[in-house]
């Protein structure tokens, strides 16, 4: 299993008391798997994704990424694990507004400097159909192109796991298909994909869909 959740819970302290965002989740994502977690807004999907990405410590339970619990590592090592094994794709893209397409992709290689990084980035630019946009900044790209840049950035380091939070939320139908196709391609090449969405049509593209409601994934 690339990703394993063992009875993972996460609670937040709110103005009205403690809020259980996620309760007792147990599931896994294997290599080659594209797993979708579908549920309405506010059901805890993003919280789940952040815990999977070693960005949010669970209140209880265990998260294993490629067999290791990232929350047992010191913060810098945890960052290193993210740089090495995890790629993120967000609904809002989160591209760096002053860097070009190529530089945005290369920004992901800063924590793991590599002499071949530029070559990989150039290949991804071409593969994702961004060849004539390599020097453009995000403001000069369409939403579909921006999400493709984000996707290229997520995979440039050759991660084992891609976590996608509503990756198609801001895209038109054509670009939805393009992005999902790329995610499936990543999974087919041996990686794992955990995709969270509220859209059943998007979830249908996954190999497996888990329904999430009120912080739980009923068995």
């Amino acid at each position: 299993m690339i990703l394993k959740f063992n009875e993972v819970s996460r609670a937040f302290r709110g103005p009205d008391g403690v809020v259980d965002a996620v309760m007792d989740l147990s599931f896994g994502v294997a290599a080659g798997d594209m797993v979708a977690v579908q549920g309405p807004s506010g059901c805890g999907k993003t919280t789940l994704l952040l815990m999977a990405g070693a960005l949010l410590r669970p209140t209880s339970g265990e998260v294993l990424v490629d067999g290791r619990d990232p929350y047992e590592l010191p913060p810098d090592d945890r960052s290193g694990l993210r740089a090495e094994k995890i790629g993120f794709v967000f609904q809002q893209f989160y591209l760096i507004p002053y860097l070009s397409v190529l530089d945005n992709i290369l920004a992901a290689t800063v924590p793991r400097p590599d002499s071949k990084a530029r070559k990989r980035a150039e290949e991804l630019v071409d593969r994702f159909g961004l060849g004539d946009r390599r020097r453009h900044v995000p403001a000069q790209l369409s939403t579909g192109e921006q999400q493709r840049v984000a996707l290229a950035r997520a995979v440039v380091n050759g991660p084992r796991l891609v976590l996608a939070d509503e990756p198609t939320g801001n895209l038109d139908a054509e670009n939805v298909e393009i992005v999902l196709a790329h995610l499936k391609e990543f999974a087919s090449s041996g990686g794992g994909v955990l995709l969270v969405t509220h859209d059943a049509a998007v979830a249908d593209h996954a190999d497996r869909t888990l329904q999430m409601k009120a912080g739980r994934i009923p068995v």
Binding site: S79, L81, R82, E84, Y94, V110
Partner: peptide, 16 residues
């Protein structure tokens, strides 16, 4: 702050 957030997600350490 969103830049910082996504950089952390990409694995940027505190020194970066």
């Amino acid at each position: 702050r969103s830049e910082i957030g996504v950089m952390r997600a990409m694995g940027y350490r505190s020194r970066h």
